[in-house]
Design a protein around this nucleic acid. Structure first.
Lengths: 164, 164
DNA sequence: TATTGTTATACTCTATAACTATA
DNA sequence: TATAGTTATAGAGTATAACAATA
């Protein structure tokens, strides 16, 4: 089964002790990636029945928060390219969750407004996501959750200051 | 430029205050994603000159840490599918950073062993990544960095316990 | 000149299914 | 039966470049 005489697991443990310094686990970036993958998979499972992906959920949340926002503004808030917003908007409109509303004062833009169905599905999925996040972080104390949230936000803050 | 009489930014600030409860920023998952994207882009920039991606770097790190490991074991450690390891191994072998070494005791497996060039490039890129991570988290205290690391690891721990 | 929405396009990453050779 | 390595393939997500309409 394994390469030498020892079992694979035993060999790995031994090697790990011998070369702690080489470990990926020492990098924040690596741990961030692994954590993100886990949480994202969990998120996907939580929203499986709703037909919403992470990005459509996020876009719908932004439209709920800022009714009559433009696609370009949503893209900026989410940190993605304008071009990617078309498919997301198409998807949400096809499901009847928002409408493109022409703006009289600027005929280039189409304001995005949630429909009643969009409002309902957002509130339902938001609750699902909240419940799932609570389950996912059940082994975290309230303080640990707040600390994690604050530290994750701080990563973005440092980056934003650098850009400005 | 904007939809109403107000500027886009002013309108967004106002709306944000009016609907704090709808905000994506309340979700750990969303903040984790945004943070991950930033750190990953930074990582990419740091390794731009080396021709190594995050996954090839990670795989090389594992092979350095566990010489003569198999592709399947690397895949398990990295949490990806075996099939994806082929392209990564091909890439690292084509660059001369590792070799596939047939295993006499199990002719299905090919042990992965770093070459001297692989050792050198790994140590150089690891230092680059460390330096870049230090710069990226310069606005974090040493304690904050350790706390973040511990909390990120804890996310995976909770998941792994659940699987076991 | 700059911006909005849009299309076409290509690239990265990843997973699934199937195959073979081995165990 | 199960596992290792492999291939083919398809999907999600994202970015870039270009265009017309409009500011």
């Amino acid at each position: 089964m394994s390469i030498g005489a020892k079992s694979g697991a035993a060999r790995l443990d031994e090697a790990a002790q011998a070369s702690e310094a080489l470990s990926l686990d020492a990098f924040i970036g690596y741990n961030l990636k692994r954590a993100y993958i886990l949480v994202q998979e969990d998120f996907r499972r939580a929203l499986a029945g709703e037909g919403l992906s992470a990005r459509t959920f996020s876009a719908l949340a932004i439209v709920m928060q800022y009714p009559d926002i433009t696609q370009a503004e949503v893209a900026r808030l989410l940190g993605v390219d304008r071009s990617g917003m078309v498919a997301i908007t198409d998807d949400l409109q096809a499901r009847g969750y928002l409408i493109r509303r022409p703006d009289a004062s600027d005929r280039r833009v189409q304001a995005l407004a949630p429909t009643e169905a969009g409002r309902l599905v957002f509130e339902r999925t938001r609750d699902k996501v909240q419940a799932h996040e609570q389950k996912l972080f059940a082994h975290f104390s309230a303080e640990e959750q707040q600390t994690l949230l604050a530290l994750l936000r701080k990563i973005r803050n440092g980056q934003m200051e650098e850009e400005a």
